[in-house]
């Protein structure tokens, strides 16, 4: 069980040209990915998260071979993606949540037939995989519907099926639940969990939705400003970030702020509704039990900290010293072109 995905000090540097005068241009060098190293074992399901522009998609594009790293060493299944893109393509599946690989104007099944040819899937295997995916993802009634008529959730499931027809060993998912409603999200997550458990497919998941990670991944990697700032269990991320969950409590009537122990504090009161913040690493159960016992409780809900907030807190709690900001963006002296 060696490393299936292997990154060793991988960098991606873009030169961004900016007009500074009529003919003058200044070249700024942007390090989208700055010396990232990690390994993912076969069969792992890993969350890869970070704020917008952190370098997540750039990493995924390097893993598929679309982008060539500016430095470092990168291997997927022992293959250098950018050198042997075509060979690797038969072994990986990709879903970009905001883009589609499906033929917009044609019925869903036509796109699958195309995948059949494109990945040279043996006929029997294609039929077997298609039947299984159609059943698991509930696509039966949609196969003859033109893709443009599908809802976002349906289209996403259609895209996931398209990425798996050729039995890829690894699946890259870039925001697979973005814009989906609760039911569709649950369906996609359940499917991914089964895929990973039953087929042993390695999954690398990029998302903004912390629940995706919580429900699917035992391991999470956080990237910020092109650097890997965290790699470990999700619980550890909450601790590192000092993240807080919020308990929203509806009481029977207006009351003074709830007193519910040392770790929880009321952050907002609006009539009978109160908001309590408590550490994300703690269970909500004792807190809820206590409030229910002592107050006239009508309703309650728990809100998870969103990923941006966790990361922002984590970065600020780590202190600026450990966040290697300098060197990310540098102006190249004299690099002017006309």
């Amino acid at each position: 069980m060696g490393a299936f995905i292997e990154l060793d000090r991988v960098e991606k540097v873009f030169d961004v040209r900016k007009r500074t005068g009529f003919l003058k241009r200044e070249v700024r060098r942007v390090r989208a990915v700055d010396s990232i190293s990690f390994t993912v074992a076969r069969g792992e399901m890993v969350g890869y998260i970070g704020p917008n522009g952190a370098g997540k998609s750039t990493t995924i594009k390097m893993l598929t071979g679309i982008l060539t790293p500016s430095g470092g060493r990168l291997r997927v299944a022992g293959i250098d993606p950018s050198r042997e893109r075509m060979r690797l393509a038969h072994r990986i599946g990709v879903v970009f949540g905001q883009r589609t690989t499906l033929w917009w104007d044609l019925p869903l099944i036509d796109s699958y037939r195309l995948m059949h040819r494109m990945y040279r899937i043996p006929d029997a295997r294609y039929r077997e995989n298609l039947d299984r995916l159609v059943e698991l993802l509930g696509l039966g009634a949609l196969l003859d519907v033109p893709v443009r008529q599908l809802s976002l959730g349906q289209r996403m499931r259609g895209d996931i099926a398209a990425a798996l027809l050729h039995d890829p060993e690894v699946l890259y998912l870039d925001e697979p639940t973005i814009g989906l409603d609760v039911v569709s999200k649950a369906r996609v997550r359940e499917f991914l969990r089964e895929l990973n458990a039953e087929r042993g497919t390695t999954v690398l998941l990029t998302t903004h939705d912390l629940q995706d990670i919580e429900q699917l991944c035992s391991r999470v990697m956080v990237i910020d400003h092109g650097r890997l700032v965290y790699d470990g269990a999700l619980a550890g991320l909450h601790e590192a970030g000092g993240g807080e969950r919020t308990l929203v409590v509806d009481l029977a009537r207006e009351l003074p702020p709830i007193e519910a122990g040392p770790t929880a504090r009321v952050v907002k009161v609006d009539g009978p509704r109160q908001w309590l913040a408590f550490p994300a690493s703690e269970s909500a159960a004792p807190l809820v039990a206590r409030i229910a016992a002592e107050y006239p409780l009508v309703d309650l809900s728990v809100r998870e900290p969103d990923i941006e907030a966790v990361i922002a807190k984590m970065l600020s709690s780590m202190g600026d010293a450990s966040v290697p900001a300098p060197g990310r963006e540098t102006v190249v002296p004299g690099a002017q072109s006309s």
Partner: peptide
């Protein structure tokens, strides 16, 4: 051989995509 079938499928798709818009 395999790629001929792929590009034939793409061509058929191209035909059908335009045929959709009567």
């Amino acid at each position: 051989m395999g790629s001929a079938r792929l590009y034939a499928a793409v061509a058929v798709g191209g035909f059908r995509r335009y045929a959709t818009y009567r």
